[in-house]
Every structure is written in structure tokens, then in C-alpha cells.
């Protein structure tokens, strides 16, 4: 019995979601943990701290081809005799985990939010309005972990790193271009998010929103109409039809709190709402609220955040 954890380690340092997944895999008690990854990441031996005993890395493989990556995961799983396969519920994981499950005729838990109770894994359903417990009945199980679900483990040793040698077949998908929209914190794994809506009146008014986000080391997000009107890029749109996020802190400025918006943010640990309308539905979902004009409240928040940063 052993556990495989498939992670995307692209980018300079090891992503938080990857470290969380390795931690999770080591806490599942499915035997020794082998991490599987791809690309040119360095420092992979440090995943030992999160509980991996070995890291297998396929250096030359396509970063977007779910078929090659699925073969990689299944080859390593077969070699290791793994019965548990952990993935991250992100763009890479979503292209791979269900494929691995279908290939191995294994049950898949899409986006679990914590360790299981016995055989039961909890996940959010109905866009965060309810939770479901899923039981996997097949011999092999594939578990995708939602980001921000578990504190990162420390204290393990160093993992051995091994390059994958096997043939993964031809790549059928190629990356033509990567258009950078900014170097900010990726929204799905951000611990803090400052979000603004139609109440900001126009894209020219986002300066203070970005300034507050910077001061709080937060990512920026927006409501759907804001993205639809091209005030902000589409990848910032959170909600039922946008990105679903679960940060520790979500600050909503000039957002009414429509049910479809809440669906994407209601799993945030602490929600702050700033709205000039005391009847805005968002206050019902909030932990902290300020009834006031965003254009007067934001400078006060920025000033207080600067003061706090100066004191630390």
C-alpha cells in the first residue's frame, strides 16, 4: 500500500497548493508518499518536509496535456503499487484527476475540503450552499484536494528526487502563447482577497482597491458585471459562474451580495462587507460590516493598513 500525490510545481518556488497536497497525502495513512510532478522545478527534495519520501519528476513532458500527465501518474502508481492518488483541484488537477480515475476505474472525490472521517470525504456542493459526504467504493481511490484546506506540514526529512524515464507518448496539446495579465497572487490560492463590484462606478476607480490589496498582501477579485463590462480581467471574476475561492479573508467593496456572487465566496473564513446600502444582502453573510461610501471608507482602510504595516 502506498500513496501517490500529483502536483503542479511550475513557477519559481514550490506552490502552496502543492505543499498542502503532499501534507494531506501523508496524513491519509495510505502508506509511504511518492510525489509526482513535471517541468523544471528545483528544490523538490524539500517536499520531504511535508511527508513525501520520494519525488518523481518528468522533466520534458507537456505542461498542459492531460493524457501524458495521466499516463505519468498511472505509470508511477503502478510501479509503486499505489491505492490512493491525491491531486490538487486546480486547472492542472482538473485535467488529470478525473482521467486517472476513469483509467483506473476508481472513484474520484472532486475537491475535498479536509481529511476524511473513515471512508467519507467532505466536499462543497450546490456552490457552497451545502456539503456532501462521498464514499469511494472502488479498491483504488482518487482524491482531489481544494486549495486552502489544510495547514502545510513541516518537520519531515528530505525526499529523494528521481527523474521519470518512461515514454509518455506524443503530446496532443501545445501551448501557443501565455499572455500574462499581471504578476499578482493567484486568486484560487490567495489567503486574502480584496474584491470590488459595480459600486466602484468605473475602472478608473480601482487604484485604492489595488492599493489596499497590496498593503494586505491580498489578491484582487471582482463581481461578474465588473468583468462583463471589462472594468477588470475575466480571471478576477468570482462567483457561481466565475472562480470559487475559500480565502481566510474576503473584503467585498460595493458588491450587493447576490446569491450567485455568494456562491463563489461563502466559504471564506472571514467576510468583510463595505456597502453604502444598509439593506445590501451581503451583510447577512458578513462577519464585519461597514455601511458607508466606498470612496470615503477606502482611504481610511488604506491609512490603517499602512499604520499596521509600519508597526510590524
Amino acid at each position: 500500500m502506498s500513496t501517490i500525490v500529483f502536483i503542479d510545481t511550475r513557477g519559481g518556488k514550490l506552490p502552496k497548493a502543492a505543499q498542502e497536497a503532499v501534507t494531506y497525502a501523508s496524513q491519509l495513512e495510505g502508506g509511504p508518499v511518492t510525489a509526482v510532478t513535471f517541468g523544471d522545478a528545483q528544490g523538490l527534495e524539500t517536499l520531504g518536509a511535508q511527508g513525501a519520501s520520494k519525488v518523481v519528476v518528468a522533466r520534458g513532458v507537456s505542461t498542459v496535456d492531460g493524457q501524458q500527465l495521466t499516463k505519468l501518474v498511472c505509470d508511477v502508481a503502478a510501479a509503486e503499487g499505489a491505492t490512493t492518488i491525491v491531486c490538487v483541484s486546480d486547472a492542472t488537477g482538473k485535467a488529470v484527476a478525473p482521467r486517472v480515475a476513469a483509467r483506473l476505474k476508481a472513484g474520484h472525490v472532486a475537491g475535498t475540503i479536509g481529511l476524511p472521517q473513515g471512508n467519507r470525504f467532505t466536499r462543497n456542493v450546490f456552490s457552497g450552499k451545502a456539503r456532501a459526504q462521498v464514499e469511494v467504493t472502488s479498491a483504488t481511490r482518487v482524491i482531489s484536494l481544494s486549495p486552502n484546506s489544510i495547514p502545510i506540514g513541516t518537520g519531515g526529512g528530505s525526499a529523494t528526487v528521481q527523474e521519470h524515464a518512461g515514454d509518455l507518448g506524443p503530446s496532443r496539446i501545445t501551448v501557443k502563447e501565455l499572455r500574462k495579465a499581471g504578476s499578482g497572487i493567484p486568486l484560487p490560492e490567495a489567503e486574502r482577497v480584496v474584491s470590488a463590484g459595480r459600486g466602484m462606478k468605473g475602472p478608473e476607480n480601482w487604484g485604492p482597491v489595488e492599493e489596499l490589496a497590496n498593503l494586505l498582501h491580498a489578491a484582487t477579485a471582482c463581481s461578474r458585471p465588473v468583468a462583463d463590462m471589462h472594468w477588470r480581467p475575466h480571471h478576477e471574476h468570482v462567483g457561481q459562474t466565475g472562480v470559487a475561492i475559500r480565502p481566510n479573508l474576503y473584503i467585498a467593496i460595493g458588491i450587493s451580495g447576490a446569491i450567485q456572487h455568494l456562491a463563489g465566496v461563502n466559504q471564506s473564513k472571514v467576510i468583510c462587507v463595505i456597502n453604502k446600502d444598509p439593506e445590501a444582502p451581503f451583510f447577512k453573510a458578513a462577519d464585519y460590516g461597514i455601511v458607508g461610501d466606498a470612496f470615503e471608507v477606502l482611504p481610511k482602510l488604506i491609512e490603517a493598513a499602512k499604520k499596521l504595516n509600519a508597526e510590524r
Binding site: 498542459v64 501545445t174 501557443k176 502563447e177 501565455l178 499572455r179 500574462k180 495579465a181 493567484p186 484560487p188
Partner: peptide
């Protein structure tokens, strides 16, 4: 497709 921090263009 939107990926964190940008847009990825793929061909298949």
C-alpha cells in the same frame, strides 16, 4: 483559458 495570472492559448 484563464490561468492564474493570465491567459493561456492552446492548440490541439
Amino acid at each position: 483559458r484563464d490561468v492564474p495570472g493570465g491567459v493561456e492559448v492552446l492548440e490541439l
